[in-house]
Simulated assay, not measured.
Amino acid sequence: MANAKPPQIAIVGAGMFVRNQYIPRLSEISDLVSLKAIWSRSEESARGAVEIAQKYFPGVECKWGDEGLDQIIEDKSILGVAVVLAGQAQVDFSLRLLKTGKHVLQATSELEAALAGYNSISANIKPIWAVAENYRFEPAFVECKRLVAEVGDMMSVQVIIEGSMNSSNPYFSSSWRRNFTGGFILDMGVHYIAGLRMLVGCEVVSVSAITTHVDKTLPPPDNMSSLFQLENGCSGVFVMIVSSSSPKIFWRVVGLKGTLQIERGKHDGQHGYLVSFYGADGQCKNTFYRFSGVTDEFKSFIRDIQQASVKGSYHEAEPRMSFVEGATDVAVLGAMLESGAKQGAPVHVKKF
């Protein structure tokens, strides 16, 4: 395997996240993967993304429309496909690709309805369906998952999200997010729920939430305050404001023996997370971890599709990228939104 050529992948979608995140992050690991094609519904959009990608992957091909998608499907040299489309379209495209044997990396979306579709795929070797969730790969969360045991029995968990989704944000005018049930709360919130679940190491079993719509430039709801209970008996709060004039994002676990906090911020010009651990002696230890989750999840997906091509169905894919993990994130937030629509009535979180 040492002399094997890097696996070839394609990207289906050519929007802002592909241009601003996926292409730059793939360029960082161009020794591990080859980007063969980028597809979009329109030729103009596809060419715009390809123009950016050509700086790092000179041979990348431009594909668009039904014919271009068929060419990607029929290209046996393409092992995996990253599906980065509007939430409403992701599942249909992912299942179509999976049924033709392509391994798929998909952004979090309406996964519950698609589980049966994936499980019904009849193949000797079922292709990998990975859900992109970079929070489960961020070094800060990986380290804190290990550290959280040191706070002792949990007494309280707090997740405070004061976002900055205003007109200066490139995603503010995204039409599909505005026509998506749950709007920006769901689109943004699943990542913060993923961070919560990874940090506490157990599941959210029930929620009670109040939702409001204050900023009329945003789709409803744009504010949510939720009380949640974990299966270990600990309770916590999840507060999310889509757009605030003073953005702040942190997770905090208070235990009998200490407190652990992850706060998003900058250090020496780099974006990342400041991890603060307060021990029983009251002393605080701070460590900063820069963002690298998108790159690390790509590395994991690439390893998986390489191993699957060698070991077949005997290869166990990275559990942090399983569609069940992504569906559970959506289920927690969905329960909160459902409770909000019922004026705070308790709602149990669906299990998978």
Rank of each mutant, 00 (worst) to 15 (best):
F238W: 13
K311L: 11
L186Q: 11
H213S: 05
R264N: 08
A341E: 12
Q158R: 15
P346E: 08
L85S: 03
Q343G: 03
G182T: 01
G87I: 00
S77D: 09
S246C: 07
Q71V: 05
F277P: 03
S208K: 05
D153K: 15
G293K: 07
K102Q: 07
R320V: 02
V332T: 01
G312I: 03
R19M: 09
F137V: 02
L79Y: 04
I29T: 02
T100G: 02
G189Q: 04
A123I: 01
W39H: 06
F228G: 02
M1A: 04
Y56W: 10
V205K: 13
T211M: 12
K5G: 03
R47W: 10
A140T: 00
R47A: 12
V254I: 13
L256P: 00
L147I: 02
F250A: 00
Q307L: 10
S164F: 08
A10H: 10
H271Y: 15
V81K: 15
S206Y: 11
G340N: 08
K99R: 11
G312T: 01
A331P: 01
V237S: 14
E74C: 04
V12M: 15
I193N: 03
L199V: 00
T287I: 10
W176E: 10
E263L: 08
G312Q: 11
M336T: 00
G236R: 05
L115V: 02
Q261W: 06
R19E: 09
Q106N: 09
Y118F: 14
F17G: 01
L111I: 07
S245C: 10
V142G: 00
L218C: 02
Q261C: 06
F172N: 06
L105T: 00
I23G: 05
S174N: 07
D66F: 12
F238N: 00
W64Q: 05
L115G: 06
V324H: 13
V60I: 06
T211D: 12
E316H: 09
V347L: 12
T287D: 10
G189A: 01
P220F: 05
Q71W: 15
R96S: 05
S276M: 07
R320S: 06
K285E: 14
S168N: 09
C62N: 04
P220Q: 03
I72F: 14
V190N: 11
K102W: 08
G326C: 03
R178D: 02
Q21V: 06
P58D: 08
L95P: 00
E133Y: 10
M154F: 12
N166F: 10
R197D: 11
E231Q: 05
G87K: 04
H103K: 05
G80M: 08
I9V: 04
S245M: 13
I241G: 05
K145G: 08
G65A: 01
V84D: 13
S94C: 02
V214W: 13
Q88V: 03
A46L: 09
K216E: 14
W251H: 09
S27A: 11
S309T: 06
D329P: 03
G236I: 00
M336S: 03
